[in-house]
Amino acid sequence: MKVLVAVKRVIDYNIKVRVKSDQSGVDLANVKMAMNPFCEIAVEEAVRLKEKGVADEVIVVSIGPKVAQEQIRTAMALGADRGILVETDEPLESLAIAKLLTKVVEVEQPGLVILGKQSIDADNNQTGQMLGALAGMSQGTFASEINVSENSVEVTREIDGGLQTLSLNLPAIITTDLRLNEPRYASLPNIMKAKRKPLDVKTPADFGVNVISGLKTLLVESPQERSAGVLVGSVSELVEKLKNEAKVI
């Protein structure tokens, strides 16, 4: 079985983002970029499936600028076998990404597609589900455990208030949550080996996909800073205000 993993290049999770003064977006100049943490978990899960003998090939795909090759190489250093970059300098919306991934799925015919549940930049949490709809596949989002058998995969999902387990027909889409696994470190020899693994570069035009989006970002602002409220004189006054004014207890 082939496993396809989609990864995204995003601002490193340790970097404090800063809104540009012209409010056109977030300042990314000379800022450290990295693989989206949820995508790293997806890569790790796929590599573990290969190590268990469930998967025989792990293909990693990214859609983004040329430098997103770095993240594909990282995925290959972690154990993916080959990479595909769909190169575009346009920032694409989830729907366009899902359409492109659908085409990759058509070509590669994977048994499982594993994606991060969301990227830490746009925080959309859409791509995996959209791909599921477009490719007519079942989905197990927010996975914290997966068990693959002959024709199905059992996925434990982190839902509000607990865990839900579903059985999905293969081929299926999995999106990863934090507790699915702890990704390994890439070793130096594997980083060097990854430089020689095959990496195919395509463009959206190669797939004949229209990437125009119905969404337009008009403005990006810093969140409103909180301001100091009132000082209360006693516990009873505090309780009274929480009950009657803020209505939170």
């Binding site: 702890e182 990704p183 390994r184 470190y185 070793s187 130096l188 020899p189």
Partner: peptide, 20 residues
Amino acid sequence: TGDMGVDENGQPKDSYMPGM
């Protein structure tokens, strides 16, 4: 290079990777 994935007491964690 330093070992990766060592806990605060110096014990290897699941993610342990020895240095090179």
